[in-house]
Each structure stands twice: as structure tokens, then as C-alpha cells.
Nucleic acid binder design. Sequence first.
DNA 1: AACCTCCTCAAGACGTGCTGAAGCCAGCAC
DNA 2: GTGCTGGCTTCAGCACGTCTTGAGGAGGTT
Lengths: 295, 295
Amino acid sequence: MFDLHRLRLLRELSQRGTLAAVAQALSYSPSSVSQQLSLLETEVGVPLLEPVGRRVKLTPQAEILVRHTEEVLARLEQAESEVAASLHEITGTLRVATFQTAALALIPATLARMRDEHPSLRIEFQVLDPAEALSALNARDFDLVFVEEWPDQPEARFTGLEYREVCRDPIRLAVPRGLPVDGIASYPWIMEPDGFPQRTFNVNWCRHNGFEPDVRFSSTDVLVKLRFVERGLAVALLPDLVWYDREVTVDLHELPVAQSRLLFTAARAGRGQHPAVRAFRETLARSTALLQPPL
Amino acid sequence: MFDLHRLRLLRELSQRGTLAAVAQALSYSPSSVSQQLSLLETEVGVPLLEPVGRRVKLTPQAEILVRHTEEVLARLEQAESEVAASLHEITGTLRVATFQTAALALIPATLARMRDEHPSLRIEFQVLDPAEALSALNARDFDLVFVEEWPDQPEARFTGLEYREVCRDPIRLAVPRGLPVDGIASYPWIMEPDGFPQRTFNVNWCRHNGFEPDVRFSSTDVLVKLRFVERGLAVALLPDLVWYDREVTVDLHELPVAQSRLLFTAARAGRGQHPAVRAFRETLARSTALLQPPL
DNA sequence: AACCTCCTCAAGACGTGCTGAAGCCAGCAC
DNA sequence: GTGCTGGCTTCAGCACGTCTTGAGGAGGTT
């Protein structure tokens, strides 16, 4: 019987590509991962890894093991879910991560409802980028994540996760009050820093509309962006969720071709039926149903 | 994520009934099993065991975990089987246990064939009673066992094992040369010691035929029984397999109502497709096909 | 050629899980 | 009732396994 912990390392390796990435994701030293995997190799009695450049590649036998490990891990998650579902009350701890706009808009209402309806459930919450959130979910740092996906910027979808779409969030052009729309090509822009999906989407959108944006300001914080636009310093593309429970203080313009980001939740396979996860998803859906386009 | 080793202890407990039996089957001290199970309990956060008299009983939540653990263990066996099947040659070690008559008759031919056809496969072999063999198979001490089942004396069938019938082995009355059959009620008998299924079957058969046998000799060794009958010391019920490759030296009589023991193999769920297990079963079937009733 | 990244190996520290002894409780025999 | 057995638990002590650190080598990049 192969050691499940070691099999899990192998699975992470197949998803993340390098021992170093596995080690970082699971908070081990690379050396530990290396040792455990070579022990697994002797256990199985067959080569599992072969060096490719300075990385390693999984052998066909390793791929077989990974496939079954996925099933086994999902099954164990399911076991845990069923045990939790067999109890009368939802208890324990649910660890949730979401992106910033959700944390500002939907999450407070959702958490308040959850606290009232499931007082014995402790919810831990953290703001995290989609990419990090999905990676951390896969590494078991969270039980449920709520992430955004910008048009044509798909997030890496781990196998072994269950995804569920929540809604689409329309994207509009935000310009300072009174600024003519046809000036955006020459106006300063505020976007995310380089490398973020939003940044790529923003730049692509500008180019598609015939100009190279003058990205003078960058921030990951949507409220900073908003402030810059309000004060007439820059223009930005902002999703409608920004305006949840907030007065519109800038001029909003529909995009010529409608665009929206996709909002979805993810849980590890087998944990989607966990009562705490189900309750959170349902409550989030109720909060989302109240959304209205900004005035 | 629950610890699989601990889950396995819980599963063994559900099959074997007492911590002490689990400890013995898996070669641990009872204290170790107790400690691991209480750690599992804190891990799950729900009571898993409740004391009943001086034993323990599994809670409904524990039963849920056991159900999933069965699946997980079978899946891991399957993974191992598939890895082995993906290789060109059958290698490694196959641990086999059988009852005595098979060890004398079918096994030598089977092992010789296996050695010739799969020279890289090491086969370890041990003679064991059916009950012990099945228990040890379940505890992973063996990969394949070949057992007998006497009429109306079913062996405890562990869940999580795959069974496959091999053949039926007719049972006949063996009496010393020339002894009239109607004397068996008053003649000394040789049977297995008390508590063995064969003993129970033997005694029941005698009673069903209207007499209480005079069990003067007992032995688990079928060759000892045979010797006693040959020398005119006793009568016995012997399965035909005894006569495999052996001259009939006693008078054999069909039973008024034909009786036979069932011979079958068992492997852990998921391991039935292991190439070594498959090869052994097929080779055993070939050896069995050559069986002929004694002259 | 120099540097960086990634993997591996050796040595030491820490922690987990084992054993064995002792204690407790239930069931059963006398 | 008393004593005995069987089963589970707790505790102290020990051993092994698994982690970390640090060094070293090999491949790839600039």
C-alpha cells in the first residue's frame, strides 16, 4: 500500500511542474519533497521521475498513480463532507478566500447572514488574487474560494477542483466627471501592475480600440483606482461590483462591445457537498441576486 | 484530510469487532490502536467509538468513514495493479497461502508453471487454514489465498475482498480395504480437532446418517488421516483432491447424498487485476482442469 | 563565462507513533 | 459476594521516520 502523503506530493508535482513549486505550495523544503518522492519510487519499485533539463518529468507509471490519487483524495473529501452532513448543525471552521471587489461588496453581507443562520460555524476569510487563491485552495489552505476571471485571461484550472459559476460582472469605462469619452486615448490610465490578468485585459482592450494606453499609475487596489478617477487623474476600466452600495462618483460608459468578468467559486472535488460549503455558496448566491447595475 | 492509516484501523475494527483483534491482525499493540483511533476521533471532531460492555461500537459517523475507506483502499490496490500491468514483465513478489490438500496437490504444479512462465516473479507460499488465510489476506499479509469451504460451514467473508470460485471437490467416505460400509457407525473415526469446520461437517454428517461417531483420533493433517485409514485404524471423510497424483490405497464410497467442498481464491478488492494475481489464478485454473476423479 | 534555478545528498533535530506496564471496568464462574 | 479473565485506556519512555539546513552538481540563461 503506497503512502498517501507521498502520492499527494506526486500529484502536486504533476500539477505544479517543479519540486520547488510543490515545496512552496505545501510549505515544505524542496529537499523534503525530493526525499519523499524518491522513497515513493522505491516503494513502488518503478521509476516515477526522470530528469528533463533541470526539472523532472513524470513517467507513465507516475501518471497512473496521479490519476488514482485524484480519485482517492476526492473520496476522502467526500467522506469528510458526509460526516459533516450527518450532523444536525453546521459546525467547525470554513476557510474562504476572495478577490478584493467581492470582499468589499458581497462578502460582508454574506458573512453576516452566515453568522446569523449558522452561529456554530466559524468562518475564516482572506483577500487573495484568483491565481493564488486557486493554488492555495488546491494546497488545502482554504475550503472555498471565490474568484474572478477576466475576458480571455483564463485562470489555471486545477484538476481536482469543482467550479461553479456565480454570475458575470459587466465592465465599464470610468472617466472623471465631464471628461469627453473620445479623450481616453490620450488620457493617463490606472491599471493593475504588469503581469496581472486585469492589466493584460486592459491593455489588450485599448489596443483593440486603436490606441496604446498611457499607463501612468498602477495599483491592485480598486479603491485607489476609483479615487484616481474621481479626482480626474486617470481613466480606468471598472467592474460594476465596485458600485455595490456606493454612490457613482464618476462618468460610466458602456463598452462598445459589452465585456464582463466571470465570477465563480471553487472547492476541492468531493468537498462541494460539505454542508458548510453548500451553505456558503447558497448564501453568496442570495447576496448576488440583489445586485443591480449602477445608476 | 483524515489520516489513511488511522482510517484503516477503523475499518479493521469494524470488521474484527475489538481493538485487540485489530492489533493482533496488524501486529500492533492494543494500546497503539487505541491511541491512533482516539487521535482519529479528535481529527474528525466527532465521536467514532462508544463503549458497549467491555467492547466498543462504531458510531454512524464511523460507519460512513469505513464505507469510504473501503473504496479508498480498493482504489489504491487498483493503482498498484495498474502500475504493475503497465510494465512488460511480471516482477516483484506474490505472497500466496493455501490449505493443505491444495498445497500437496495443485500448488507444486502451479508454482512450477509460474516459475517457467514468469521467471522474474518471486512467489512466497505458506500453508494456512482458510479462516486464518482470509484474515491474513485482509491484513495484507498475503496477496492471494486459495481456500476451501465445507458444506454448511461458510468462512467469514470479509468485505473488501474479491472472491472467485475455482472448483468443487467431491467428498467421499474412506474406509480400510475390505471393511463393510455399514460398519462405520461403530468404527473409530479420525477427524480434525474440535472447532474446525471440517470437524463440524464430519460430525453433522454422521448424525444426519443416524449415529454419533466415535472420534478417537484427530489431526489437521490429511496425510495422517489417510495413513490411519490405510492401516485399518479408522474411517474418514476425505476430499478427492487427496488422491491427486496418488494411488488409491483404501476403499472409497460415494456419499448417499453427494457432498463437496467449495474451493475458491480471494484477493483484496482492486488487486484482482494485478498481473501477478491474474497469472496465478489462470495457472491454477489450468492445473485444476487436469483433475480427475480417483479410480 | 558567470549566474541562477532546480534537484539531490548528508547530517542533525524534532516529532510522531510505537511498546510495555499499570489501572479500570464489565462479564462470568464459583 | 469474590475472584478471574478479557478488553480498553492512560502514561512514560524509546525508536524510528520525516523534516530542515547547508553543501554540491547539473542545466539553462544572459
